[in-house]
Design a protein around this nucleic acid. Sequence first.
DNA 1: ACCAAAGTTGACGTTAACGTCAACTAGCAC
DNA 2: GTGCTAGTTGACGTTAACGTCAACTTTGGT
Lengths: 134, 134
Amino acid sequence: MAEQHTYTISDLARDFDVTTRTIRFYEEKGLLSPARKGQHRIFDKADHARLELILRGKRAGLSLDESREIIDMYEPGGDNYEQLQFLLSKVDERQAQLESQIEDIRQLLTGLDEVRARCNGALKKISAGNSAKT
Amino acid sequence: MAEQHTYTISDLARDFDVTTRTIRFYEEKGLLSPARKGQHRIFDKADHARLELILRGKRAGLSLDESREIIDMYEPGGDNYEQLQFLLSKVDERQAQLESQIEDIRQLLTGLDEVRARCNGALKKISAGNSAKT
DNA sequence: ACCAAAGTTGACGTTAACGTCAACTAGCAC
DNA sequence: GTGCTAGTTGACGTTAACGTCAACTTTGGT
C-alpha cells in the first residue's frame, strides 16, 4: 500500500550535489546501508534522510564518525532501561558539545563585527577627507 | 616602558594544550610568525591571541586556511577605499557563512531533542510496566 | 541482438593536519 | 667540561575524506 519511493545512487547525488563516489564511500564507512537489487543499490526515504543528516553534520563541522554517532541515536538499538539511559547521556553530551560550538562561532562573529566597525570608521575618515578636498 | 610579556613555544603549548609540533606547523602554514632570538622562537601577546583565534576556529569546524582568512581580516593590510570595501565584503561573506553554520547546528540540536523526547517516552513506559507488575 | 548510459568493485592518488622519530645545538647546573 | 633540558630543522608516517582511473556488468531503447 505504502508507495515506497526509492532512489538510484545518482538520484541522491543530484539531490544533494555530491558524487556517487562519496555516497559509496559513506556506505563503506557504515553511514548508509541501502538495499540491493542484484548489484545495484536502492535507496529509500530513510536513506535519503540519513544522507541529509550526514551532510548537515559536515556543514556543522563534524567528522563522519561524529555524524554516524548522531545518526545511530535516531535508530532504536535497544529499548531496555540501561540502554535508554546510556542513549540519553550520549544525547546530552552531544548537545552540550554542539552548544559550545555555537558559542565559539558566536565569538568569531563578534570579532568580525569589530573588524567591520573599524573598517567603517576608516571609510568615514576617507570620505571626510574627500569632501574636505572637494 | 611597556612590559613586553613573551612566551616560549612550550609556554604556548601548555596554555592551549597543543603540541609544539602543532605550533611549528601553524608557523609553516603562515598562521603565526613569531620573532626569533637566534634560533629560538619568541611569541608575544599578539601571537598568543592569534593562536587562540586559530583554535577557536578549529572548534568551530573551520580549516586552517579559513582561520587564516579570518585572522588576516584583523590585520590592516591596506587602508584605501577599494581595499576596505573588499575587506567589508569578505567580512559579510564570512559572517553569513558562520550564521548558516549555526543554523545547521541548531537543526542537529532540534533533532537530538526529538530523540530525547522519544527516549523519555520509552522510559516512562518501562517504569509504568514495572510499577504495574509490582 | 546490440549499443550507450548507468552502475559495480577494486586499487591507487591526494590534501589537510598533524605525529613521530632522528640528529643537532644552545644554555644552565654542578 | 659534562650532562640535562628546551629548542631547532628535516624527513617520513598517518588518518580522514574523498578523487580518479580501470575493467567489468547490467539495463533500457531501437
